[in-house]
Design a protein around this nucleic acid. Structure first.
Lengths: 155, 155
DNA sequence: TGACAATAGGTGTGATAACACGTATTCTGG
DNA sequence: CCAGAATACGTGTTATCACACCTATTGTCA
């Protein structure tokens, strides 16, 4: 019997291996979820990565974080955190200040406007999570999370 | 106990819900796999999406496919298939010809050079699959695939 | 102490993605 | 038949990504 993914992608030939199928399943699922996520954020004029940054900065209040630290905590790494932050700063959602003890660091903090935006967006995000994953029960979610953990924890 | 993902992202606060954690787990895992995948493809001067197109076209030989059909079969949808194909055509990996019975369609086929590139790349891709997913046993892979299928098959 | 590595961050640039809109061809119903 | 919808594909434009390279500050050790 053809796999569900094979049908989704209208593939005539079966996958070469389970590993290949697993890889493509992860990619496709991530793409579908991400698309729904981006659509929900679009009316608020921010991307999923920008939302991620705002979440990280809110979680680090009241201390704030430096650029590299923000980059390290992103769910999806991006190679150009500087201009990602530039855009958020231009939108007045974050604020940067140089000049702690080590003058190399630039401290970044979320602004009041950033917090306000997060609060506005969050309800919609919860709805998206429900739409996308609400049909899985708790054991299924736990099992999925656990298996993905195993994937990432490769030796 | 803090979840593994929470530790990975250096989060101080626990996730708001299992659904949120599942979503982020999927995204993060996909990003890590994709990164390894792109790195393996880079020496061959193609992206993961381009590789995906070549695979699709090889699978559709000797008939070829039209643009929309290629777009529909991509693991990750892209909004600009035309220029994606433009770049592959410029690299002589695919060939396009207009003018079947319905003159709206543009038939796309993989070239000999495209097939050759695929053959070169494929061994390396298998290695990546092994590196990334080789530590999961067959039941784990099947369970993961099945759960992701459930996610995508939401009502 | 002072050359050099390491760390933190920024810049320049070309490729790509994302979105809206435009053109050509075919289908469809009155 | 033929006006208009539907389909298939392309183009223009802006923002973002991705990579290599650059500057400033601090740490390290002969």
């Amino acid at each position: 019997m053809a796999s569900a993914l094979q049908t989704e992608l209208k593939q005539r030939k079966p996958f070469k291996s389970l590993k290949e199928e697993a890889h493509l399943s992860i990619q496709r699922t991530a793409a579908l979820l991400e698309h729904a996520f981006e659509s929900a954020l679009k009316p608020h004029r921010i991307t999923a990565t920008q939302y991620n940054v705002l979440r990280i900065l809110r979680g680090s209040e009241p201390d704030g974080l430096c650029r590299n630290e923000i980059g390290a905590r992103l769910v999806r790494q991006v190679p150009d955190v500087t201009r990602l932050l530039d855009r958020l700063e231009e939108a007045k959602l974050i604020a940067r200040t140089r000049g702690g003890e080590d003058r190399r660091f630039v401290l970044t903090r979320i602004t009041r406007a950033g917090l306000k935006l997060l609060a506005q967006v969050e309800q919609r995000i919860d709805d998206i999570h429900d739409e996308q994953l609400g049909h899985l029960d708790e054991p299924q979610l736990r099992k999925l999370i656990s298996l993905l953990e195993v994937v990432r924890a490769r030796p």
